[in-house]
Design a protein around this nucleic acid. Structure first.
Lengths: 225, 225
DNA sequence: AGCTCCCTGCACAAATTCTGCACAACCCAT
DNA sequence: ATGGGTTGTGCAGAATTTGTGCAGGGAGCT
């Protein structure tokens, strides 16, 4: 989980960073609104901790601009109570706020709560094609409801194929996607995994799910039924 | 609502006591760290007001010890600004702090805020999955109602896993979450704790609660029944 | 000081998965 | 039909990942 921390006060920035890093998050910092927007685009954080009282482009403005292009959860840091009213009044789509001074524990608790909510919202990690269901987070695959025990590599192959159903994926593409690009694994190796994967699918009665297109590549088949 | 006030200065103790009593709280006092711990155990206060600069066992130490067995909210009283850094930096789990000199009104306001928050957090501190119940506040775990004696690390692991049931948590993620990020604990160490945790679960008949997904991580299992 | 409990991590064993060779089977254009 | 290129299969050693026995060190309690 990556978190973008935006505050102009270096001490507070450090405090928050250290706290969050201890809590197991990856942290990126920005010291003003402009930088915040740049980083938000480039780093695609999972959450933004945003100070309201930024110089120049203030926090509320940054929030509005962020919301224009992303649904990233936002947690505001506010110094004074009257700032809270502005946040609430403006309905900017902030997810929560914490008033300074705050305790690290509190901050982490709030962040966890937000992330939990937003991950509950976005259960879109499940790929589905025909009777095959692939849950990336749980590393689990079900066929007609029955769980399939796949190894990491097998699952990786299946995911690639399911990401573009009905489209043909070439072998080099697959290999690049599974191992990094420019890896030197033999073509036969891919075949081995492919075989195991097919065998496991076949045990559930879907042996023909992955079809070979000779000389071109592989694809998650056009479903028979 | 019962509040424990810990300070070695009798005048300040009285001031705080009277202020709080006027605000409608029941007050218990202690003049040193040792006494504070004793009272905290016996009286189970709803909040502790703790002076940082105590003789002998200092406030930070008291806080740490309290945290070892309870989640009671803690409000620090600090004399100097540099003490604040220590509180925040150490991430002891304090909920707020007030610098001396402070106004009685300020103190009461902070206390109200903390109590409000902690009651709002309220009953959501219990994680449950299958027959396993984890009560973060009480540091206790029950399986089919039977209490399980877990060490701090074991509990930490279990909590991480239960926070995202059915999802896989990688070993690095677990290690980052339990110790700070970027810590250098051996992989085997995690295994050791894991083994102990599993053994204890097995004694209650749920040895398979935590399953291993080879090469990926661990997960709080898909429940058998 | 002595005792207990917990954390940490080494050395080794066990389990699981990955890789790729040798060869057979297959597809398609000529 | 035939030959060259492509894909599937049996198999086994290599490599990685995970589990276990065990022990030293340190914190806390009496």
């Amino acid at each position: 989980m990556k978190i973008l921390v935006v505050d102009d006060d270096p001490r507070l920035r450090d405090l928050v960073s250290i706290t969050l890093e201890r809590a197991g998050y990856q942290v990126v910092t920005a010291r003003d609104g402009q930088m915040a927007l740049t980083h938000a685009m480039r780093e695609t954080p999972d959450l933004v901790v945003l100070d309201v009282g930024l110089p120049e482009l203030d926090g509320l403005e940054v929030c509005r601009k962020l919301r224009a292009r992303s649904d990233v959860p936002i947690l505001f840091l506010t110094a004074r109570d009257d700032e809270i009213d502005r946040i609430l009044g403006l309905e900017l789509g902030a997810d929560d706020y914490v008033t300074k001074p705050f305790s690290p524990r509190e901050l982490v608790a709030r962040i966890k709560a937000i992330l939990k909510r937003s991950s509950a919202r976005g259960t879109a990690t499940v790929l589905r094609y025909g009777p095959v269901e692939l849950d990336a987070a749980g590393h689990s695959v079900r066929v007609d409801g029955a769980a399939l025990a796949l190894t990491a590599t097998e699952l990786s192959i299946l995911r690639q194929l399911m990401q573009t159903p009905e489209a043909i994926v070439s072998r080099p593409q697959l290999i690049d996607a599974i191992y990094g690009a420019g890896s030197a694994v033999a073509d036969r190796t891919l075949d081995s995994h492919l075989r195991n994967l097919r065998r496991k699918l076949a045990e559930q009665g879907w042996g023909s799910a992955i079809e070979t297109v000779h000389g071109i590549g592989l694809r998650m088949g056009t479903w028979p039924g």
